[in-house]
């Protein structure tokens, strides 16, 4: 009995939101349950537990994954980021502010996963079309908004980020002129 029990437990050491975490987890423990139940990171949500709704979307080693289709035991050495960490570092603050301003969230249950997916898109594609935004978030179910507000918010942030990058370039040019 003790042997059988032992074989179902796996040691993992990983980084979650930049902090080192070591736990002994059941082999069947999904990442979403590991985050919520073992680490108290309740910002990520379980919606369907079969990989369709996207509510449990988190970032693992730079890629977005379904927390309900990933086993914690797979994550030894991994680098995991959840909404709590992405909020604390300010990485998605502009997206969050745009979501709030545009009312691109209502009940908020899909929002942490949606933000992770949107951040992933903007990292890959700084100027996505509306159709591209729709396509990229098409694995994230939102029952409340009808999606249009989310598309608007992402479009706004993409434009603002491009403008900010542009401003840096203009700023450099200005400095150059002054130097002349």
């Amino acid at each position: 009995m003790a042997e059988a029990e032992f074989s179902t437990l796996v040691e993992v050491s990983l980084r979650v939101n930049g902090e080192r975490v070591s736990r002994r987890v059941e082999a069947r423990r999904h990442l979403i349950d590991f985050l919520r139940l073992d680490l108290g990171l309740t910002g990520s949500h379980a919606g369907c537990e079969h990989g369709v709704c996207g509510a449990c979307t988190v970032r693992v080693d730079g890629e977005i994954v379904r927390g309900c289709l990933t086993l914690a035991a797979q994550l030894d050495g991994a680098d995991v980021w959840t909404i709590e960490g992405l909020s604390d570092t300010g990485e998605v603050r502009d997206l969050q502010q745009a979501f709030v301003a545009r009312n691109a969230l209502q009940c908020g249950y899909c929002t942490p996963g949606m933000l992770a997916t949107c951040a992933d898109l903007l990292e890959r594609s700084p100027a996505p079309s509306r159709a591209e935004i729709r396509e990229h978030i098409s694995g994230n179910y939102c029952r409340c908004t009808g999606y249009e507000a989310i598309i608007d918010a992402v479009e706004t942030v993409a434009a603002a980020r491009r403008a900010a990058t542009g401003q840096v370039a203009i700023g450099q040019a200005t400095i150059g002129e002054t130097a002349e």
Partner: peptide, 10 residues
């Protein structure tokens, strides 16, 4: 809304 957007809802 900001609380929900940061995953700090209950």
């Amino acid at each position: 809304a900001p609380r929900l957007a940061e995953g700090r809802g209950t």
